[in-house]
Design a protein around this nucleic acid. Structure first.
Lengths: 185, 185
DNA sequence: CGCCTACTTGCTTGTTGACAACAAGTATTT
DNA sequence: AAATACTTGTTGTCAACAAGCAAGTAGGCG
Protein backbone atom coordinates (compact mmCIF):
# COMPACT_ATOMS: atom_id res chain seq x y z
CA UNK A 1 0.00 0.00 0.00
CA UNK A 2 2.81 2.39 0.95
CA UNK A 3 4.62 1.36 -2.22
CA UNK A 4 1.52 2.11 -4.28
CA UNK A 5 1.28 5.49 -2.58
CA UNK A 6 4.93 6.29 -3.38
CA UNK A 7 4.44 5.39 -7.03
CA UNK A 8 1.28 7.42 -7.37
CA UNK A 9 2.74 10.47 -5.63
CA UNK A 10 5.61 10.36 -8.11
CA UNK A 11 3.27 9.96 -11.06
CA UNK A 12 0.67 12.56 -10.18
CA UNK A 13 1.86 14.63 -7.26
CA UNK A 14 0.15 14.73 -3.89
CA UNK A 15 -2.84 16.78 -4.94
CA UNK A 16 -3.86 14.51 -7.75
CA UNK A 17 -3.22 11.31 -5.88
CA UNK A 18 -6.48 9.99 -4.51
CA UNK A 19 -6.97 7.55 -1.70
CA UNK A 20 -9.16 5.43 -3.95
CA UNK A 21 -6.43 5.19 -6.56
CA UNK A 22 -3.89 4.10 -3.96
CA UNK A 23 -6.18 1.36 -2.68
CA UNK A 24 -6.92 0.08 -6.14
CA UNK A 25 -3.33 0.30 -7.34
CA UNK A 26 -2.39 -1.93 -4.40
CA UNK A 27 -5.05 -4.42 -5.49
CA UNK A 28 -7.68 -3.52 -2.93
CA UNK A 29 -10.89 -1.57 -2.88
CA UNK A 30 -11.23 2.19 -3.11
CA UNK A 31 -12.01 2.50 0.58
CA UNK A 32 -9.11 0.63 2.15
CA UNK A 33 -6.56 3.42 2.18
CA UNK A 34 -8.90 5.68 4.10
CA UNK A 35 -9.84 2.83 6.41
CA UNK A 36 -6.26 1.94 7.27
CA UNK A 37 -4.73 5.38 7.57
CA UNK A 38 -7.74 7.40 8.62
CA UNK A 39 -7.07 10.29 6.28
CA UNK A 40 -4.93 11.41 3.41
CA UNK A 41 -2.67 13.21 5.86
CA UNK A 42 -2.41 10.05 7.95
CA UNK A 43 -1.32 8.05 4.95
CA UNK A 44 1.29 10.61 3.95
CA UNK A 45 2.57 10.59 7.50
CA UNK A 46 2.97 6.85 7.34
CA UNK A 47 4.80 7.13 4.02
CA UNK A 48 7.20 9.66 5.53
CA UNK A 49 7.82 7.49 8.57
CA UNK A 50 8.48 4.44 6.44
CA UNK A 51 11.02 6.23 4.26
CA UNK A 52 12.64 7.90 7.25
CA UNK A 53 13.18 4.52 8.86
CA UNK A 54 15.00 3.35 5.74
CA UNK A 55 17.16 6.47 5.75
CA UNK A 56 18.03 6.08 9.41
CA UNK A 57 19.12 2.54 8.60
CA UNK A 58 21.55 3.87 5.97
CA UNK A 59 22.77 6.57 8.32
CA UNK A 60 23.42 4.30 11.26
CA UNK A 61 25.31 1.65 9.34
CA UNK A 62 27.46 4.33 7.70
CA UNK A 63 28.27 6.48 10.70
CA UNK A 64 28.47 3.76 13.34
CA UNK A 65 30.59 4.86 16.25
CA UNK A 66 32.49 7.51 14.33
CA UNK A 67 32.61 11.11 15.55
CA UNK A 68 33.98 14.41 14.37
CA UNK A 69 34.81 15.14 10.77
CA UNK A 70 34.73 11.43 9.91
CA UNK A 71 31.10 11.19 11.03
CA UNK A 72 30.12 14.22 8.97
CA UNK A 73 31.76 12.81 5.86
CA UNK A 74 30.28 9.38 6.44
CA UNK A 75 26.82 10.89 6.86
CA UNK A 76 27.15 12.91 3.66
CA UNK A 77 28.34 9.78 1.88
CA UNK A 78 25.45 7.74 3.27
CA UNK A 79 23.10 10.39 2.04
CA UNK A 80 24.63 10.31 -1.40
CA UNK A 81 24.31 6.54 -1.47
CA UNK A 82 20.70 6.69 -0.30
CA UNK A 83 19.85 9.20 -3.02
CA UNK A 84 21.35 7.02 -5.74
CA UNK A 85 20.02 3.73 -4.32
CA UNK A 86 16.49 4.87 -3.62
CA UNK A 87 15.76 7.95 -5.72
CA UNK A 88 12.03 7.28 -5.48
CA UNK A 89 12.17 7.38 -1.72
CA UNK A 90 14.11 10.60 -1.58
CA UNK A 91 11.86 12.25 -4.14
CA UNK A 92 8.72 11.38 -2.25
CA UNK A 93 10.25 12.29 1.08
CA UNK A 94 11.12 15.72 -0.18
CA UNK A 95 7.79 16.23 -1.85
CA UNK A 96 6.10 15.54 1.45
CA UNK A 97 8.63 17.38 3.59
CA UNK A 98 8.60 20.48 1.51
CA UNK A 99 4.88 20.44 1.22
CA UNK A 100 5.12 20.55 4.98
CA UNK A 101 6.53 24.06 4.82
CA UNK A 102 2.97 25.12 4.54
CA UNK A 103 1.71 26.32 7.89
CA UNK A 104 -0.82 24.07 9.49
CA UNK A 105 0.47 21.48 7.06
CA UNK A 106 0.02 18.05 8.53
CA UNK A 107 3.64 17.10 8.00
CA UNK A 108 5.17 20.31 9.19
CA UNK A 109 5.83 18.86 12.62
CA UNK A 110 7.54 15.73 11.31
CA UNK A 111 9.58 17.70 8.83
CA UNK A 112 10.63 20.18 11.50
CA UNK A 113 11.61 17.41 13.86
CA UNK A 114 13.61 15.57 11.20
CA UNK A 115 15.64 18.67 10.37
CA UNK A 116 16.10 19.49 14.03
CA UNK A 117 17.42 16.00 14.61
CA UNK A 118 19.80 16.15 11.68
CA UNK A 119 21.17 19.48 12.83
CA UNK A 120 21.54 18.17 16.37
CA UNK A 121 23.42 15.10 15.11
CA UNK A 122 25.77 17.23 13.03
CA UNK A 123 26.30 19.60 15.93
CA UNK A 124 27.23 16.71 18.18
CA UNK A 125 29.70 15.34 15.65
CA UNK A 126 31.32 18.74 15.31
CA UNK A 127 31.51 19.26 19.04
CA UNK A 128 33.08 15.82 19.42
CA UNK A 129 35.42 16.64 16.59
CA UNK A 130 36.59 19.79 18.32
CA UNK A 131 37.10 17.80 21.50
CA UNK A 132 39.20 15.12 19.81
CA UNK A 133 41.08 17.63 17.70
CA UNK A 134 39.81 16.54 14.27
CA UNK A 135 37.93 19.83 13.83
CA UNK A 136 39.31 23.32 14.35
CA UNK A 137 38.04 25.00 17.47
CA UNK A 138 37.17 28.46 16.20
CA UNK A 139 33.86 27.57 14.56
CA UNK A 140 30.41 27.55 16.08
CA UNK A 141 29.15 23.95 16.06
CA UNK A 142 25.56 25.07 15.86
CA UNK A 143 26.06 27.43 12.92
CA UNK A 144 28.29 25.01 11.04
CA UNK A 145 25.83 22.16 11.62
CA UNK A 146 22.97 24.26 10.28
CA UNK A 147 25.00 25.20 7.22
CA UNK A 148 25.84 21.55 6.67
CA UNK A 149 22.22 20.40 6.76
CA UNK A 150 20.98 23.40 4.79
CA UNK A 151 23.54 22.78 2.09
CA UNK A 152 22.52 19.16 1.62
CA UNK A 153 18.82 20.04 1.66
CA UNK A 154 19.29 22.82 -0.87
CA UNK A 155 21.34 20.74 -3.26
CA UNK A 156 18.88 17.90 -3.07
CA UNK A 157 16.03 20.22 -3.80
CA UNK A 158 17.65 21.67 -6.88
CA UNK A 159 18.60 18.21 -8.08
CA UNK A 160 15.08 16.89 -7.59
CA UNK A 161 13.67 19.81 -9.47
CA UNK A 162 15.91 19.36 -12.45
CA UNK A 163 18.23 16.36 -12.37
CA UNK A 164 19.82 17.19 -15.68
CA UNK A 165 20.82 20.67 -14.56
CA UNK A 166 23.23 19.38 -11.97
CA UNK A 167 25.78 16.63 -11.71
CA UNK A 168 24.93 15.31 -8.28
CA UNK A 169 28.07 13.21 -7.98
CA UNK A 170 30.21 16.19 -8.90
CA UNK A 171 28.52 18.54 -6.44
CA UNK A 172 28.72 15.89 -3.78
CA UNK A 173 32.44 15.37 -4.28
CA UNK A 174 33.06 19.11 -4.16
CA UNK A 175 30.93 19.41 -1.03
CA UNK A 176 32.91 16.73 0.79
CA UNK A 177 36.12 18.45 -0.26
CA UNK A 178 35.22 21.94 0.96
CA UNK A 179 33.65 20.42 4.05
CA UNK A 180 36.85 18.79 5.27
CA UNK A 181 38.80 21.85 4.18
CA UNK A 182 36.66 24.15 6.27
CA UNK A 183 36.62 21.90 9.29
CA UNK A 184 40.27 20.88 9.29
CA UNK A 185 42.22 22.45 12.11
CA UNK B 1 -7.05 39.40 -4.65
CA UNK B 2 -3.42 38.26 -4.72
CA UNK B 3 -2.96 39.75 -1.26
CA UNK B 4 -5.96 37.83 0.00
CA UNK B 5 -4.52 34.67 -1.52
CA UNK B 6 -1.17 35.24 0.20
CA UNK B 7 -2.83 35.72 3.57
CA UNK B 8 -5.01 32.67 3.22
CA UNK B 9 -2.16 30.44 2.06
CA UNK B 10 -0.25 31.49 5.17
CA UNK B 11 -3.23 30.89 7.41
CA UNK B 12 -4.38 27.55 6.06
CA UNK B 13 -1.83 26.19 3.64
CA UNK B 14 -2.48 25.62 -0.04
CA UNK B 15 -4.66 22.56 0.35
CA UNK B 16 -7.12 24.17 2.69
CA UNK B 17 -7.24 27.46 0.85
CA UNK B 18 -10.32 27.53 -1.35
CA UNK B 19 -10.93 29.75 -4.32
CA UNK B 20 -14.23 30.80 -2.79
CA UNK B 21 -12.52 31.92 0.39
CA UNK B 22 -10.00 33.99 -1.55
CA UNK B 23 -12.73 35.76 -3.50
CA UNK B 24 -14.73 36.51 -0.41
CA UNK B 25 -11.71 37.59 1.63
CA UNK B 26 -10.98 40.12 -1.09
CA UNK B 27 -14.53 41.43 -0.84
CA UNK B 28 -15.95 39.71 -3.91
CA UNK B 29 -18.06 36.70 -4.66
CA UNK B 30 -17.06 33.07 -4.32
CA UNK B 31 -16.74 32.65 -8.07
CA UNK B 32 -14.44 35.50 -8.97
CA UNK B 33 -11.12 33.87 -8.19
CA UNK B 34 -11.91 30.99 -10.51
CA UNK B 35 -13.19 33.37 -13.16
CA UNK B 36 -10.11 35.57 -13.13
CA UNK B 37 -7.41 32.94 -12.82
CA UNK B 38 -9.09 29.99 -14.46
CA UNK B 39 -8.01 27.47 -11.88
CA UNK B 40 -6.40 27.11 -8.52
CA UNK B 41 -3.11 26.40 -10.24
CA UNK B 42 -3.54 29.51 -12.35
CA UNK B 43 -4.04 31.65 -9.29
CA UNK B 44 -0.99 30.19 -7.56
CA UNK B 45 1.01 30.84 -10.67
CA UNK B 46 -0.04 34.45 -10.62
CA UNK B 47 0.89 34.73 -6.95
CA UNK B 48 4.33 33.33 -7.68
CA UNK B 49 4.85 35.71 -10.59
CA UNK B 50 3.79 38.70 -8.51
CA UNK B 51 6.18 37.87 -5.69
CA UNK B 52 8.98 37.05 -8.10
CA UNK B 53 8.63 40.45 -9.70
CA UNK B 54 9.07 42.08 -6.28
CA UNK B 55 12.16 39.97 -5.61
CA UNK B 56 13.69 40.82 -8.96
CA UNK B 57 13.18 44.47 -8.08
CA UNK B 58 15.18 44.00 -4.88
CA UNK B 59 17.86 42.06 -6.71
CA UNK B 60 18.33 44.54 -9.52
CA UNK B 61 18.58 47.60 -7.31
CA UNK B 62 21.08 45.83 -5.06
CA UNK B 63 23.34 44.27 -7.65
CA UNK B 64 23.18 46.97 -10.29
CA UNK B 65 26.20 46.87 -12.55
CA UNK B 66 28.41 45.03 -10.10
CA UNK B 67 30.13 41.81 -11.05
CA UNK B 68 32.29 39.19 -9.42
CA UNK B 69 32.43 38.64 -5.69
CA UNK B 70 30.78 42.02 -5.06
CA UNK B 71 27.72 40.98 -7.04
CA UNK B 72 27.43 37.69 -5.14
CA UNK B 73 27.61 39.46 -1.79
CA UNK B 74 25.16 42.13 -2.90
CA UNK B 75 22.72 39.48 -4.07
CA UNK B 76 22.97 37.57 -0.81
CA UNK B 77 22.44 40.83 1.06
CA UNK B 78 19.45 41.73 -1.08
CA UNK B 79 18.03 38.34 -0.36
CA UNK B 80 18.51 38.82 3.35
CA UNK B 81 16.81 42.19 3.16
CA UNK B 82 13.92 40.79 1.15
CA UNK B 83 13.41 38.02 3.67
CA UNK B 84 13.29 40.45 6.57
CA UNK B 85 11.23 43.08 4.72
CA UNK B 86 8.66 40.76 3.22
CA UNK B 87 8.60 37.55 5.22
CA UNK B 88 5.07 36.82 4.05
CA UNK B 89 6.16 36.95 0.44
CA UNK B 90 9.11 34.66 0.94
CA UNK B 91 7.07 32.19 2.96
CA UNK B 92 4.39 31.94 0.30
CA UNK B 93 6.93 31.81 -2.50
CA UNK B 94 8.65 28.87 -0.89
CA UNK B 95 5.42 27.11 -0.04
CA UNK B 96 4.47 27.27 -3.69
CA UNK B 97 7.95 26.56 -5.06
CA UNK B 98 8.53 23.59 -2.87
CA UNK B 99 5.08 22.28 -3.50
CA UNK B 100 6.31 22.44 -7.08
CA UNK B 101 8.87 19.72 -6.41
CA UNK B 102 5.98 17.40 -6.97
CA UNK B 103 6.07 15.99 -10.48
CA UNK B 104 3.33 17.19 -12.74
CA UNK B 105 3.00 19.99 -10.22
CA UNK B 106 1.74 23.07 -11.96
CA UNK B 107 4.49 25.27 -10.60
CA UNK B 108 7.35 22.89 -11.23
CA UNK B 109 8.25 24.65 -14.44
CA UNK B 110 8.33 28.11 -12.92
CA UNK B 111 10.26 26.94 -9.92
CA UNK B 112 12.76 25.14 -12.12
CA UNK B 113 13.21 28.20 -14.28
CA UNK B 114 13.68 30.49 -11.31
CA UNK B 115 16.44 28.33 -9.86
CA UNK B 116 18.05 27.90 -13.25
CA UNK B 117 18.11 31.66 -13.66
CA UNK B 118 19.57 32.25 -10.22
CA UNK B 119 22.29 29.71 -10.85
CA UNK B 120 23.02 31.23 -14.25
CA UNK B 121 23.28 34.71 -12.70
CA UNK B 122 25.64 33.50 -10.01
CA UNK B 123 27.70 31.62 -12.56
CA UNK B 124 28.06 34.75 -14.66
CA UNK B 125 29.14 36.81 -11.66
CA UNK B 126 31.74 34.23 -10.74
CA UNK B 127 33.04 33.99 -14.31
CA UNK B 128 33.29 37.77 -14.45
CA UNK B 129 34.99 37.73 -11.08
CA UNK B 130 37.60 35.30 -12.31
CA UNK B 131 38.13 37.51 -15.36
CA UNK B 132 38.63 40.68 -13.32
CA UNK B 133 40.69 38.93 -10.69
CA UNK B 134 38.31 39.31 -7.74
CA UNK B 135 37.72 35.55 -7.64
CA UNK B 136 40.36 32.83 -7.63
CA UNK B 137 40.62 30.97 -10.89
CA UNK B 138 40.75 27.36 -9.71
CA UNK B 139 37.08 26.92 -8.99
CA UNK B 140 34.34 25.74 -11.30
CA UNK B 141 31.90 28.64 -11.79
CA UNK B 142 29.03 26.27 -12.41
CA UNK B 143 29.60 24.13 -9.34
CA UNK B 144 30.24 27.10 -7.08
CA UNK B 145 27.14 28.87 -8.38
CA UNK B 146 25.02 25.82 -7.69
CA UNK B 147 26.42 25.53 -4.19
CA UNK B 148 25.72 29.20 -3.62
CA UNK B 149 22.06 28.97 -4.65
CA UNK B 150 21.56 25.63 -2.90
CA UNK B 151 22.94 27.01 0.31
CA UNK B 152 20.60 29.97 0.34
CA UNK B 153 17.63 27.80 -0.57
CA UNK B 154 18.42 25.27 2.13
CA UNK B 155 18.91 27.85 4.85
CA UNK B 156 15.71 29.58 3.92
CA UNK B 157 13.82 26.34 4.02
CA UNK B 158 15.04 25.45 7.48
CA UNK B 159 14.35 28.95 8.70
CA UNK B 160 10.82 28.92 7.31
CA UNK B 161 10.16 25.58 8.92
CA UNK B 162 11.26 26.67 12.34
CA UNK B 163 12.27 30.31 12.68
CA UNK B 164 13.20 29.97 16.33
CA UNK B 165 15.65 27.16 15.64
CA UNK B 166 17.97 29.37 13.67
CA UNK B 167 19.33 32.89 13.92
CA UNK B 168 18.91 33.95 10.33
CA UNK B 169 21.03 37.08 10.72
CA UNK B 170 23.83 35.05 12.25
CA UNK B 171 23.78 32.36 9.58
CA UNK B 172 23.63 35.02 6.91
CA UNK B 173 26.66 36.83 8.31
CA UNK B 174 28.61 33.61 8.52
CA UNK B 175 27.59 32.69 4.98
CA UNK B 176 28.84 35.98 3.57
CA UNK B 177 32.07 35.52 5.48
CA UNK B 178 32.84 32.01 4.24
CA UNK B 179 31.65 32.99 0.78
CA UNK B 180 34.22 35.73 0.32
CA UNK B 181 36.82 33.55 2.02
CA UNK B 182 36.25 30.70 -0.43
CA UNK B 183 36.17 32.94 -3.47
CA UNK B 184 39.07 35.21 -2.61
CA UNK B 185 42.10 34.60 -4.80
C1' DC C 1 -25.43 67.00 -30.23
C1' DG C 2 -28.55 63.55 -28.45
C1' DC C 3 -30.01 58.95 -28.57
C1' DC C 4 -30.39 54.19 -29.67
C1' DT C 5 -28.15 49.70 -30.33
C1' DA C 6 -24.37 46.32 -30.30
C1' DC C 7 -20.62 44.79 -27.87
C1' DT C 8 -17.35 44.33 -23.98
C1' DT C 9 -15.97 43.94 -19.24
C1' DG C 10 -16.40 42.60 -14.55
C1' DC C 11 -18.72 40.10 -11.64
C1' DT C 12 -22.37 36.70 -9.60
C1' DT C 13 -25.19 32.64 -9.19
C1' DG C 14 -26.37 27.75 -10.61
C1' DT C 15 -24.66 23.21 -11.48
C1' DT C 16 -21.80 19.08 -12.02
C1' DG C 17 -18.38 15.70 -11.04
C1' DA C 18 -14.58 14.28 -8.12
C1' DC C 19 -13.06 13.05 -3.86
C1' DA C 20 -12.13 12.76 1.33
C1' DA C 21 -14.33 11.13 5.18
C1' DC C 22 -17.34 8.36 7.52
C1' DA C 23 -20.78 4.73 8.47
C1' DA C 24 -22.56 0.39 7.94
C1' DG C 25 -22.00 -3.59 6.24
C1' DT C 26 -19.72 -8.74 4.90
C1' DA C 27 -16.34 -12.28 4.95
C1' DT C 28 -12.69 -14.75 7.16
C1' DT C 29 -10.07 -16.13 10.72
C1' DT C 30 -9.24 -17.62 15.68
C1' DA D 1 -18.78 -15.41 19.33
C1' DA D 2 -15.62 -12.01 18.61
C1' DA D 3 -12.07 -9.77 16.52
C1' DT D 4 -9.79 -8.67 12.06
C1' DA D 5 -9.59 -7.26 7.30
C1' DC D 6 -11.78 -5.48 3.84
C1' DT D 7 -15.86 -3.53 0.85
C1' DT D 8 -19.79 -0.81 -0.42
C1' DG D 9 -23.07 3.13 0.42
C1' DT D 10 -23.46 7.95 1.53
C1' DT D 11 -22.58 12.86 2.54
C1' DG D 12 -20.48 17.34 2.37
C1' DT D 13 -16.99 20.13 0.26
C1' DC D 14 -14.84 22.13 -3.45
C1' DA D 15 -12.81 23.03 -8.22
C1' DA D 16 -14.40 23.88 -12.57
C1' DC D 17 -17.50 25.37 -15.76
C1' DA D 18 -21.66 27.57 -17.75
C1' DA D 19 -25.02 30.86 -17.98
C1' DG D 20 -26.50 35.01 -16.69
C1' DC D 21 -26.71 40.18 -15.35
C1' DA D 22 -25.36 44.97 -14.76
C1' DA D 23 -22.64 48.78 -15.99
C1' DG D 24 -20.07 50.70 -19.07
C1' DT D 25 -18.07 51.99 -24.04
C1' DA D 26 -18.07 52.56 -28.86
C1' DG D 27 -20.32 53.21 -33.16
C1' DG D 28 -23.86 54.77 -36.21
C1' DC D 29 -27.57 57.88 -37.45
C1' DG D 30 -31.13 61.28 -37.13
Amino acid sequence: MIAAAIDLILERGTNHTTLSAIGERAGYSRGLATYRFGSKAGLFEEVVNTIQRRWVGYLNTAVGEQTGAAALSAAADAYYRFVTDAPKDIRVLHILYYGGASPNGELRGISKQAFARQIADAERWITDGIADGSVRDDISPRTAATQYVAHIAGITYIWLLNPSQLDFADIHREFIRTLSEQLAP
